[in-house]
Simulated scan of single mutants.
Amino acid sequence: MTDGIAPAELARELGASQRRIRAFLRSQWGKLDTWTTRWVLTEEQITAVRGHFASDDAKRPLSDIDVNDLLSQYAEILSELRARGVCRTGNAPLGDYAEYLAQSVYGGELAANSAKSYDLIDAAGRRVQVKARTVSPQTSPSSVFSVFRTFDFDVALFLVFDQATYELMWAAELGPQEIEAAARWSSHVNGRLLRVRKARELGVDVTARFDAASV
């Protein structure tokens, strides 16, 4: 291309970073293989970029980044915060994201925060308890999900994500009686703890249903 404006020049004009401009262009045109210092934008791209950055969406700097990339960046930020001693875990946004995925796949409505035994009443009327955690190659084989103190639900959904990228690794369902039998009692937390490995071994694999939803 010989006509148009270079990304750096347009970035200065709009007061935006080249990274944000590139993210927007990718959201509209897909992968940009020609992103080089000599690359200039087409008139169509220039018009689209100017229109976008003049809109309300431009007030949200991350609005062009998809969910997986946002979570991956969040994981990197949490990792750095842990290295600095600011945070101690990597699970901060996980619960809400897991419930979001569960509702996307199963339908229904999320339960009120006051509901202690389940998180979702799905489209089939099932009371679904959602458990999620991240794992890494360093995660202990004895790692557990958060505590079960009551079993007043129809099925528990277990979602396990890669700690470095927040990509879904697997999803499984398990009934309350099976969980109660397989989980160990802990007086320290006044409830039962189920190992991640046990949930994987005993649960019904539903990963394929969630692959399309985790975007």
Rank of each mutant, 00 (worst) to 15 (best):
T47M: 05
L10S: 15
Y106A: 05
I5R: 10
M169S: 09
V189H: 10
R60A: 06
R200T: 13
G4I: 00
A115Y: 10
A172M: 09
V86Y: 14
L168V: 02
S186V: 10
Q163T: 06
A58I: 09
T89Y: 09
L25R: 03
Y166G: 00
D211A: 04
R22Q: 09
V147F: 08
A16Y: 02
V196W: 08
V67M: 10
S186C: 06
A83C: 14
R22D: 01
S187M: 08
D152A: 15
G191Q: 04
A54D: 15
M1H: 10
L78C: 13
L10K: 07
I121F: 02
G175S: 10
I121R: 08
V86N: 01
F161L: 09
V189D: 12
F24H: 04
S55L: 07
R82Y: 11
R88F: 03
L168H: 04
G15I: 04
A213L: 00
V130P: 08
A23P: 06
T150R: 12
A8Y: 03
A123N: 01
A111R: 07
L194A: 01
A92R: 03
A181F: 08
A48G: 14
S79D: 14
V204D: 08
G85I: 10
K59I: 00
Q28Y: 08
F153V: 00
N190K: 14
E201C: 04
G85M: 05
Y166I: 04
T139A: 03
E99P: 08
L14N: 14
T42L: 12
V67T: 10
E173N: 02
T2K: 04
S187C: 03
S214Y: 00
S140G: 11
Q73R: 12
S72Q: 05
P137L: 09
V144G: 09
Q18R: 13
G175W: 10
R84K: 06
D96M: 11
A164K: 15
A92M: 06
A124D: 15
V196A: 08
A102R: 01
G4W: 05
R184G: 08
F53D: 02
